[in-house]
């Protein structure tokens, strides 16, 4: 399966009769079976980029070239759980009846640390637990592409580290392509095979990381990379 190519993508919103450009001819190749991380300041168009790829918005111009047999999952900034369904019901929501495998559901809930909460309703869970349900829902769908919009932002440090590791394990096991949006440079360097910095509606710079996981973020190369990323983000 080929990756995803975005060609000269443009998108603007109109607020109070004022046109606000978000993406200004963005070109990006998202490699298959890898984690691509998008970094950038608030309002730089990261979420818009994900929504365009997911088909939730249409670009003003440009092309989104997707493989034919794409199966896309989206982990939003907020969990977006159905309040009338249990944790198990929410996790299995995207699946058709024939696709549901109870053993796999149990394994997935164990992976995200929700064993024992199968029958809980969303309002009975903490924000972090709800987000983990959303993550399990996306992963259980067996997607070829996972779009993730700051999925771990609401989690505490320790859960966040656990979830990052779980994501890496599942990505290696399933070979899914992941497009991951985050504000955290550390998170980007921990997860990403490719890091892209979005600024002014275009890709300002891109870096490829080949280091195996787990990565030592305190190594000299990583510290240097961190400095360059911060410069790229701040100089716009």
């Amino acid at each position: 399966m080929a990756g995803i190519d975005l060609v000269q993508l443009r998108k603007a919103y109109t607020v109070d009769q004022r046109r606000i450009p978000i993406l200004n001819g963005l070109d990006l190749s998202i490699p298959e079976k890898a984690i691509t991380v998008v970094l950038g300041k608030s309002g730089c168009g990261k979420t818009t980029l994900l929504r365009l790829i997911a088909g939730l918005e249409t670009p003003d111009s440009g092309q989104i070239q997707l493989p034919g047999n794409q199966r896309t999952a989206f982990v939003f900034q907020e969990p977006r759980l159905l309040p009338w369904l249990s944790v198990q019901g929410n996790v299995q929501f995207p699946l058709k009846r024939a696709e549901i495998q109870p053993d796999e559901t149990r394994w997935m809930l164990r992976t995200v640390g929700l064993t024992g909460f199968e029958q809980a309703l969303p309002h009975q869970l903490s924000g972090g637990m709800q987000q983990r349900v959303a993550l399990a829902r996306a992963l259980l769908y067996h997607p070829t592409l996972i779009l993730m919009d700051e999925p771990f932002a609401a989690l505490d440090h320790f859960t966040r580290v656990e979830m990052q590791q779980a994501l890496l394990d599942i990505q290696q096991k399933t070979g899914a392509s992941i497009l991951f949006v985050t504000h955290s440079i550390d998170e980007a360097m921990t997860l990403g095979n490719k890091l892209v910095i979005l600024a002014g509606g275009v890709i300002r710079s891109a870096y490829t990381l080949t280091d195996p996981h787990p990565r030592d973020l305190l190594g000299s190369e990583m510290i240097e990379l961190r400095r360059r990323i911060m410069e790229d983000i701040n100089t716009h």
């Binding site: 088909g55 939730l56 199966r71 896309t72 989206f74 939003f76 977006r80 929501f93 779009l147």
Partner: peptide, 8 residues
């Protein structure tokens, strides 16, 4: 929107 993403 969430359900649409999952091709419902």
């Amino acid at each position: 929107e969430m359900a649409r993403v999952f091709s419902c």
